[in-house]
Every structure is written in structure tokens, then in C-alpha cells.
Amino acid sequence: MNKVIANADVAIQDIQDGMTLMLGGFGLCGIPENSITALVKNGVKNLTCISNNAGVDDFGIGLMLHKKQVKKMIASYVGENAEFERQLLSGELEVELIPQGTLATRCMAAGYGMPAIFTPAGVGTEVAEGKETRNFNGKDYLMEMAFDADFAIVKAWKGDTMGNLIYKSTARNFNPLMAMAGKITIAEVEELVPAGELDPDQIHTPGIYVHRIFQGSNYEKRIEQRTLRTT
């Protein structure tokens, strides 16, 4: 079984206008840089994007926002992007803000074949509006539905030709959850190796969840808040 494809352009070529995409990463950490570049070049539009954040003005999903490729953004925190805020306040961009744990668990539910989950996050707030509430053991919980995404696009550190993935450090974040949740999952990796070279005990995402894998290139890995100590 070989899931290797040539590059990002090939990986995303059948993504159509109006589709729903998941994009891994937390801030700019662990984002699928090559695939985002390819999506910007390809020009596909009216996308619904599910991602924890919306990038910054000139990097990550921010690049897609500038080209007005995103119709709706589903995220938990969008504080670092002026163009995003402008499109939101002007009504050009539809935005659904959801709690970060809810976002993660709705991905997980999709990958685990569960239609919905119950979480206390958002009870008593505007997040609860229109949602079913259930009481378990004296505490209220919201019913949150599993995501339904056409494509999930993730970034891993290492991957093999069968689609098994290993992430590095906190660049893991949403990537393994989204990898499980896409109808079609695209993985870009820093290092692609033949099947058999990765230790089965160390795999984070089993290849069954991954449909296409390619070796990425020219990773910029931009740091949002370079914070250092001196002593």
C-alpha cells in the first residue's frame, strides 16, 4: 500500500469551491505550510475552514483570507489577524467561535465514529444557544456534533509511505485529531521514509487515517512570539 503523491499541488487539486477543510496547527506551530501555499496558488474559494486559529496577516490561513478564499471560519481564537478582524466586522466573513476543547473533541469524535459528544464547556453562555443540554449526575452538558469535513490537511514531522505519522513536540496539537476526521486526509511531512523505518510503537497517527502523503519542502516554521531568557 503506497499513499505517496508528488507534492502539495497534486494533493489539493480535487478540493472544490464550497468544501469544508480542516487545517492542523496551533497558531503557526505545526501548520501545513506547503498545502496552504498550494491552496492560495490554486485559488479555490468559498471554503469553510476548521482550524484552531486563522493564522496571522501574512502567513498561514491569513494568506487564504487575503485572497478571500474563505467563506466561513470555525476556530477558537483569532486574535492575531487584522485582516480577519476587518472581514469579520464588515460581514464578509462568517465566523463560528467555539471552545478549544470542544473543537478538539469534535474532531476526535469524527475520527472515532461517534456522532456527538457532551461537554460542560459553554453551558450558560452564548455558545449554548440552540444546542441540546443534558444533565448527567447533577451537572449540565452541551451536546456537540462530530465535525463533517471533506478534507483534513495536517503536518507531521515524519511519515512513511503507508501514511503512518509521527509529530514533533507541540506541533502535534490538533494534527492527529484532524488526521482522523477528514473524509480524505492529506499529510505533509518534513521527512518521508519507506514503510518499516518507523517504530510501530511510536506512531501517533496510523496510516489507515491518511489517504495522501508527500514530503514537504522549504518549511519556514515562523515563530509568533519569540520569547527568550537571559539568565
Binding site: 477558537s76 481564537y77 486574535g79 478582524e85 471552545p99 478549544q100 470542544t102
Partner: peptide, 10 residues
């Protein structure tokens, strides 16, 4: 100001 709740609600 609409930055989002991040993990605070959870």
C-alpha cells in the same frame, strides 16, 4: 473585540 474564547470556556 472578538478574539475568541480559546480554551477558557473548557
Amino acid at each position: 473585540m472578538v478574539k475568541g474564547m480559546g480554551g477558557a470556556m473548557d
